[in-house]
Design a binder for these strands. Structure first.
Length: 517
RNA sequence: CGGGGCGUGGCGCAGUCCGGUUAGCGCACCUGCUUUGGGAGCAGGGGGUCGCCGGUUCGAAUCCGGCCGCCCCGACCA
């Protein structure tokens, strides 16, 4: 069932007309810089306050804190299941790549040479001044590159594993860290080291490899929309935006709240480029020797950044229930030990009821923090549903339910609370997606002339659909003049002839421009 | 690599221009009491090589020289 169809069959929102927004104490506004004021600072404030990650002592790297790691783990588990379901197996290649491997595929080296970390020594020693230095005696015979991606080492290996068409296809994936020495890092969005998955497949035919690349793009798009509630545009990259060494790069592009696009995942048809570079051949059914056809595809911890920027607001993080580690949190309220005992007993019972119904629920019985503090904290952390129960509620058999995305808050009967929360979680998941989709559509503008194009980019931002003559020159000129790049040539759009808005040359279809992360 | 800014308890800062008690404030932390339906109050307490090295001076967080690091803005990128 498609996601759109799934949305259509969902139930109505659970909020009632009696519901009201909860007020925020003035000082809380200080925790997160409003988006309007400074979007970059807002993003950093959300990440910091939700305790997702910290900067690290190593420049450009990040320390992923438990809240951030839990998000990534949930993404990883969901994706891993989807990879397995499409026939892939996990394996692991080493972090160090012999330097000479990088040089084998010309475009590939060129693409990555400028951002490689290189291991040259294997020992430390002290010099005359007592300073620690790499021991000159330990200089390596051959340097190692810390992998920026693993195509080279993998294709060197595949060439040993593959002899015959009977060995194909190879459908492998690895979960790993990679290093790309970036000049301007931003937590999750662009860090020197990041966690990702890289799929590397080998096929007997071009057709099969292209199918694989397309299939995995579809997996990414489905994941983004169904789990992250983040609508994406599926597309193909232009030559200049292509992965170094790829014949074709497919991508999913998402629109962030500030009108900038985020490349959220890529899938590459590598042709026979790496097979040729690493002499990876197989014998086909007709006893002819051919080079293997390849794909690679990946998504990274950048997705966490995309998730943050898609749904969060000026009160902090907003998480889609499917990826939230805790979908609901129960905050008990009491004023003395007697009440504490009674309230906690009820809270425990409700927790069990929710857990039995399959809700990931946490009860925060910590006496060190007070309810008001906890409310604020869980809002910053984006927990989808908050339940509060105090002496009054115990007496009246009620419970307070607040949803993070709309900030609706209601006092409802305890009876049927599990169903109510489950329905609410479903509703949050779909309404987050709906809202993001509406924003994406609102932030997409179709233009036919360059003046309007520049004006839209300047004043509104977002995706701009325009005709392009297909040349790298025009693409470069637009980038130089507007900072916008062609994010992709969308896959599912009607073919529509037209003229390039600058050169007037014929165009076979509109492409999607945007400023990007 | 260019342009800007900043290094002072865990975090955020004041003090530096114009050198001079024991380096101060908020948050956080510890103890106690009172509190508790939206980030509690009061009292007490602990915690500092003022980025590093050198110089000037009776005396340096403060002046001078050098170095190091970080952040922001641009060029490269998932």
């Amino acid at each position: 069932m498609s996601f759109r169809r799934a949305l259509a069959t969902r139930r109505r929102p659970v909020s009632s007309p009696r519901s009201h927004r909860f007020p925020l104490p003035p000082h809380m506004a200080d925790a997160v810089t409003p988006r309007e004021e400074d979007y970059s600072q807002w993003y950093l404030d959300v990440v910091r306050n939700a305790k997702l990650a910290d900067n690290s002592p190593a420049r450009g790297c990040m320390i992923i804190r438990p809240n951030g790691m839990a998000l990534w783990e949930n993404m990883r588990d969901a994706l891993d299941g989807m990879f397995k379901a499409t026939g892939h197996e996990n394996l692991y290649f080493p972090i160090f790549i012999p330097e000479r491997f990088m040089a084998r595929e010309a475009e590939h080296v060129e693409g990555f040479a400028k951002e490689c970390a290189i291991v040259t020594h294997s020992r430390l020693t002290t010099n005359e001044d007592g300073d620690l230095i790499p021991d000159p005696e330990s200089k390596l015979g051959e340097n190692y590159i810390v992998r920026p991606t693993s195509e080279t080492i993998i294709w060197d290996t595949y060439s040993k594993w593959i002899q015959s068409y009977r060995d194909l296809p190879l459908l492998y994936n690895q979960w790993a860290n990679v290093v790309r020495w970036e000049m301007r890092p931003r937590l999750f969005l662009r860090t020197a080291e990041f966690l990702w998955q890289e799929g590397h497949t080998a096929h007997a035919t071009q057709h099969e490899a292209i199918e694989e690349a397309e299939r995995m793009l579809d997996v990414y798009a489905t994941f983004a929309e169904e789990y992250m509630a983040m609508p994406v545009i599926r597309g193909r990259k232009t030559e200049s935006e292509r992965f170094p060494g790829a014949v074709d790069t497919y991508c999913i592009e998402a629109m962030m709240q500030d009108g900038k696009a985020l490349q959220a995942g890529t899938s590459h048809f590598l042709g026979q480029n790496f097979a040729k570079a690493f002499d990876c051949t197989f014998t086909n059914e007709d006893n002819e020797v051919e080079h293997v056809w390849a794909t690679s595809w990946g998504v990274s911890t950048r997705l966490v950044g995309g998730l943050v920027m898609t749904h969060s607001d000026d009160q902090g993080l907003v998480l889609p229930p499917k990826l939230a580690r805790d979908q609901a949190v129960i905050v008990p309220i009491y004023f003395n030990d007697d009440q504490r005992a009674t309230v906690l007993k009820e809270a425990e019972r409700i927790k069990k009821e929710l857990a039995d119904a399959g809700v990931r629920v946490k009860l925060d019985a910590d006496d060190n923090q007070k309810p008001g503090w906890k409310f604020a904290e869980y809002e910053l952390q984006g927990i989808p549903v908050r339940l509060a129960i105090g002496p009054r509620d115990v007496k009246n058999e009620n419970i307070e339910v607040a949803r993070r995305d709309t900030k609706d808050k209601n006092i409802v009967p305890q009876e049927g609370i599990a169903d109510r929360v489950k329905t609410m979680l479903d509703d949050i998941q779909t309404s987050l997606y709906d809202r993001a989709l509406a924003r994406q559509e609102e932030m997409t503008t179709t233009v036919d002339d360059y003046d309007t194009f520049k004006e839209v980019l300047e004043e509104k931002g977002g995706f701009v659909r325009a005709h392009w003559d297909g040349t790298a020159e025009t693409e470069q000129r637009i980038q130089d003049e507007t900072k916008a790049t062609i994010r992709c040539i969308p896959l599912d759009q009607e073919q529509e002839g037209g003229e390039d808005m600058i050169t007037g040359k014929p165009s076979s279809g509109r492409v999607l421009f945007a400023k990007a992360y």
